[in-house]
Design a protein around this nucleic acid. Structure first.
Length: 805
RNA sequence: GCCGCUGUGGCGGAAUUGGCAGACGCGCUGGACUCAAAAUCCAGUUCCUUCACGGGAGUGUGGGUUCGACCCCCACCGGCGGCACCA
């Protein structure tokens, strides 16, 4: 019978399900392996062919490890809060809960059809109250530790998104929202904030502990953006006010010829002179209405106005003007800078435009042309004269400390995480605001604070979430009759995904986020696979929460994800990103139906390295299908019986290639080089087709090696080879090193580095013999001709290179 | 602009430590099987040159180190990703 994917795949998926083949067993005396996929947001569009690429990779690793004697945790779940469900609900009047449940059902059907070895008894869903109960619990622990606080702050307000909502810095791309591309404005609002900056150093330094792609580590380092410098205090002339600045170049303090303060800085109104008040107010107003995009991208031209005030440069007592300008950000450092136009490009541009004095303090460059930002000998700098940059920096910091006007200081580009969202479909923040001004947490024993059912979700119109419309839920009264109002903000989508990998370890625990011993047994995640788009957002937040839980004694590892792999993108056949509008989207359902899940899995692993982006090819897919059929025909005849060629007779013809294949496939799998592992198995099959007899032992080993990639076919072949039950826990094949040793080797003979002949000689033939044999080759002789042999390099078993000239 | 990655046949991609460039697959060409076609099996397939043996060129470009470079170094060009007034 020819290979019938549909019958086989249904048969084995059913078998795995009823036998609970992949149920994780705890407390077994085996090494553990935790293989995790980034769980999906169950969108209405269903699965995309990009999803199974990463899922297949972790599935191969899970199946390999089981056969290598590991206990494996390989779960799946749903990151199901999120914007699209709420948008859909608002548009249609449906409930996001029902809509989400329906999408999950479809996603689960699709994922199951691909034959992944998930332990579905551990499935989690971030929108399940029994799950978000613990998301809220973690928030409460943060609140108690002072890591969650409310503050009136400048937020990224996107009035056109979902009836108006606040988005995190990380969700703003070029001054527009990541989702939907709406303009973002900076407005003050009271928000919940998580103090991620308190962990900045550890988030940076502990990157050294994990095995992640360098690019991701680098992106996180840049995002955290630690810079070391100094703070310097400048007195405002004729006032008791003081302006503190942060600078990485305290060595250039003698070149500071003016200061700039962010327009939003509170000191602006205090120091602005009456003559300048009108122009300052006008400037502040114009800045306030600008979106971030207009302040940055669209307007590279520097703007600003003079406040009328002067500050005193502490190092030389000179009077310098204080300006305001929006090129200084209120949110970084102290919101004020000392400007050194001679040695900073931005200050140079500003000073040139406003004709402010430019004073060089380092030799090199020409300050009439451009700022000089390189190293050099300091000049015009009193006690720093003659020093290089680093010496001058150290000397100046000492001076500032001695005179009490400054100190060494570290600053971060990373800002605290604005955690509130003005949305319905998210975890309610478990907080009550009382009429007397007190703010309390919902007591832990009353968690989860459930999201109220709502038929009609509408924007509140006030900038608050739709929860503000739901009076029954909103208003509370305590035992003393004190009235309170629930927090109407909900958590961002990143909340549930910041700790889900822990819940899989003990998903039904109603006493704790997970049992402490089980957390110890399974942490950390050994392999985490997902897209690079989460490089900073999800991965930084999850690391932050993990460290908080570490400090609370909940988890025992410093880092959550030991090894991280980013799979590449699967592009459309036209080499462009798959999208509906381009019409190049491939639906996995169609592929599974027509070719089978095994073909899809095999093709996605064979098309190129896991980490690279590769274009889809229907021909390539078809080739994978044909190879599976070729494997099938190698072993199975037309009557669905094992071929007679498969027997216990071993004539030795396949010894070498089989042992090579076991060795290469094993190491390639372990290094996740699936494309080359497959090509080695293809080589093996090509050899097997030429062999007279197919030793049973080798065929069984081969089927085992196939099983992580094409598990349904492998299970069926395993049965046809005469075995009962599943192949999933059979011992991984081993190779015989002695069979890999060949007695003769090919040695290349080169002339001036160009290959001219090949010698087939006994292994370990000595240098002299090799040289003589090489010289005796007719082709070598004719190539040397009448030229002089200058030198002969001989590397036994490899090469003879004859240098002539 | 800055940071990181990347560049190999008609296509997807291999090449462990500096040692046969192009494994494996797709496509294409030829042969076997067939009345015929499809499927399958076998063989060939970097380019130029040669009937052939052979010879020459060749891993984005230019240079360098080396007996020998896809691999190491320098400069440049193209592609992808990230950051982008962060003082």
């Amino acid at each position: 019978m020819p290979y019938n994917h549909s019958v086989i795949e249904h048969k084995w998926q059913h078998y795995w399900r009823v036998n609970e083949t992949f149920k994780t067993v705890e407390n077994e005396n085996k090494p553990k392996y935790y293989a995790l996929d980034m769980f999906p947001y169950p969108s209405g569009q269903g699965l995309h062919v990009g999803h199974p690429e990463g899922y297949t990779a972790t599935d191969i690793m899970s199946r390999l490890k089981r056969m290598q004697g590991f206990k494996v945790l390989h779960p799946m779940g749903w990151d199901a809060f999120g914007l699209p469900a709420e948008q859909y609900a608002m548009k249609t009047g449906h409930n996001p809960k029902d809509f989400t449940a329906q999408n999950i059902k479809n996603f689960k059907r699709q994922i199951r059809s691909l034959g992944f070895s998930y332990d579905w008894s551990r499935e989690i869903n971030t929108t399940d109250p029994e799950y978000y109960r613990w998301t809220q619990w973690i928030f409460e622990q943060m609140y108690k530790k002072g890591l969650a606080y409310e503050k009136e702050t400048l937020v990224n307000w996107a009035p056109d998104l979902m009836g108006g909502t606040v988005v995190a810095n990380e969700e703003v791309i070029n001054g527009k929202t990541e989702r939907g591309d709406f303009p973002v404005y900076r407005v003050p609002m009271k928000q919940w904030i998580l103090k991620i900056t308190a962990y900045a150093d550890r988030l940076l330094d502990d990157l050294d502990l994990v095995d992640w792609p360098d690019s991701i580590k680098e992106m996180q380092r840049n995002w955290i953006g630690r810079s070391i410098g100094a703070s310097v205090h400048f007195k405002v002339e004729d006032s008791d006010k003081d302006i503190e600045v942060f600078t990485t170049r305290p060595d250039t303090l003698f070149g500071a010829t003016y200061m700039v303060v962010a327009p939003e800085h509170e000191i602006v109104d205090e120091i602005t002179t009456p003559e300048c008040k009108a122009s300052v107010d006008e400037y502040k107003a114009s800045v306030a209405t600008k979106s971030d995009l207009e302040r940055t991208d669209l307007n590279k031209d520097k703007t600003g106005v003079f406040t009328g005030a002067y500050a005193i440069n502490p190092v030389n007592g000179k009077k310098i003007p204080v300006w305001i300008g929006d090129y200084v950000l209120a949110s970084y450092g102290t919101g004020a800078i000392m400007a050194v136009p001679a040695h900073d490009d931005r200050d140079f541009e500003f000073a040139t435009k406003f004709k402010i004095n430019i004073m060089p303090v380092i030799e090199g460059g020409d300050v009439s042309e451009a700022a000089y930002t390189g190293d050099g000998v300091h000049i015009n700098s009193d006690f720093l004269n003659g020093m290089d940059k680093q010496t001058a920096i150290d000397t100046m910091i000492d001076w500032l400390q001695e005179h009490g006007v400054g100190d060494k200081k570290v600053n971060y580009r990373l800002r605290d995480w604005i955690f509130s969202r003005q949305r319905y479909w998210g975890e309610p923040i478990p907080v009550i605001h009382w009429e007397d001004g007190e703010t309390t947490l919902v007591p832990e024993d009353q968690l989860p604070l459930r999201l109220p059912a709502a038929k009609d979700i509408r924007p509140s119109g006030t900038g608050e979430s739709p929860l503000a419309n739901l009076d029954d839920w909103l208003n509370v009264v305590d035992e003393n009759g004190r009235k309170g109002r629930r927090e109407t903000n909900t958590m961002p989508q990143w909340a549930g995904s910041s700790w889900y990998y822990l819940r899989y370890i003990d998903p039904h625990n109603d006493k704790a986020i997970a049992d402490k011993d089980l957390l110890k047994e399974w942490s950390p995640v050994d392999l985490y696979v997902g897209g690079a788009e989460h490089a900073v957002l999800h991965l930084l937040y999850a690391r932050f929460w993990h460290k908080v839980l570490y400090d609370l004694g909940v988890v025992s590892t410093k880092e959550p994800f030991q090894k991280l792999v980013n799979q590449g993108m699967i592009l459309g056949e036209n080499h462009e990103k798959m999208s509906k509008s381009k019409g190049n989207v491939v639906n996995p359902d169609d592929i599974v139906e027509k070719y089978g899940a095994d073909t899809l899995r095999m093709y996605e692993m064979f098309m190129g390295p896991l980490t690279e982006s590769v274009a889809w090819s229907e021909d390539g897919l078809n080739g994978s299908r044909r190879w599976i059929e070729r494997v099938w025909r190698l072993l199975i005849d037309d009557n669905n019986h094992l071929r007679d060629r498969v027997s216990t007779i071993n004539d030795g013809a396949l010894d070498l290639v089989y042992n090579q294949t076991v060795k290469k496939v094993t190491t390639d799998y372990e290094n996740m080089h699936f494309n080359t592992a497959i090509s080695q198995m293809m080589v093996f099959v090509n050899e097997a087709y030429k062999a007279d007899s197919l030793p049973l032992e080798y065929m069984e080993g081969f089927v085992k090696m196939l099983s992580p990639i094409i598990p349904h076919v492998a299970e069926e072949l395993w049965s046809l080879l005469g075995h009962e039950g599943t192949i999933s826990y059979e011992a991984w094949p081993t190779f015989d090193e002695s069979k890999l040793v060949e007695d003769t080797v090919d040695v290349i003979v080169q002339i001036n580095g160009k290959m001219r002949a090949k010698l087939s000689v006994d292994k370990d033939t000595d240098k002299d013999t090799l040289e003589k044999l090489a010289m005796a080759e007719p082709r070598i002789q004719s190539n040397i001709g009448d030229k002089t042999v200058r030198k002969v390099i001989v590397i036994p078993n490899k090469i003879v290179n004859i240098v002539v000239g």
